[in-house]
């Protein structure tokens, strides 16, 4: 079994070809250039280099959010198009789950944070079970860093933060949580399409397939227009 994984939820454009127990190929661009221009040429090159055809894959895995609305849509529109054209199953994997996988070697709580702007982060909190599986301690949320800190204060455990929210909120987290706080290295902070594919292939084996027609990213937040409208009309 082998899948193509597409990660475009943040500034990082990532692609990977992943088999059940290994990574066949992986490409990551963290140049800040638009995914729209980079993703497809990169994908064509990666498949070429790996001497693989889309038809030989068992599924297409895509980062399901949360993250940049536009980035998520570019990834998902691409994944849907590919899956539709070669009639392969589409699998969505949480961007935060796949990010947390970068830190599974650790015993601390794992807390990926993505900069959600407007002074909030997209986050979730995990712990690694004795079997090495990710277990969720706090579900996916968009929340101010202060609320996340309050949640983590209640638990007297070490916590490691990773993700593109670290450069923005790292100082605040460190000042508030002091020696209970660790910041992952920039290497571990980068979303990896290989991690996405790794989780995706496991979902695929369990038959957790997205409906191609209706699949959409997990945005967490409604659009600002809807929020404003609700405030005015309630």
């Amino acid at each position: 079994m082998q899948v193509l994984a597409i990660e475009s939820a943040t500034n990082v454009a990532g692609l990977a070809l992943v088999a059940e127990e290994t990574v066949i190929a992986e490409a990551t661009l963290n140049t800040g250039k638009t995914h729209s221009q980079r993703l497809m040429p990169m994908l064509a090159r990666l498949l070429d280099e790996a001497e693989l055809q889309l038809e030989e894959l068992d599924g297409i895995v895509v980062s399901g959010g949360p993250g940049s609305f536009t980035g998520l849509r570019i990834g998902m529109a691409t994944a849907k198009g590919l899956a539709y054209a070669v009639q392969k199953p589409l699998v969505t994997v949480s961007t935060l789950d796949s990010l947390a996988l970068n830190c599974t070697g650790r015993t601390e709580l794992i807390c990926p944070i993505l900069n959600a702007r407007r002074n909030e982060v997209y986050s979730a909190v995990y712990r690694v079970s004795s079997e090495g599986e990710l277990q969720m301690v706090m579900p996916y949320r968009a929340l101010p860093p202060k609320e996340l800190i309050a949640f983590l204060r209640q638990r007297e455990e070490q916590v490691v933060f990773l993700g593109d929210g670290v450069p923005v909120f790292g100082d605040l987290l460190f000042n508030e949580l002091k020696d209970r706080c660790e910041l992952a290295s920039p290497l571990d902070s980068l979303p990896r399409a290989a991690a996405l594919g790794w989780l995706g292939i496991r979902k695929l084996k369990k038959g957790e397939i997205a409906d191609l027609a209706t699949a959409k990213p997990f945005y967490i937040r409604p659009s600002e227009a809807e929020v404003t409208w609700q405030q005015k009309n309630l």
């Binding site: 497809m40 570019i74 691409t78 849907k80 198009g81 590919l82 054209a85």
Partner: peptide, 19 residues
Amino acid sequence: LVGALLVGVAQAKALAYAL
């Protein structure tokens, strides 16, 4: 609208490449 255009563009590129 750029966000709207991007959905069609990404989809069309994926279809063209796959086909």
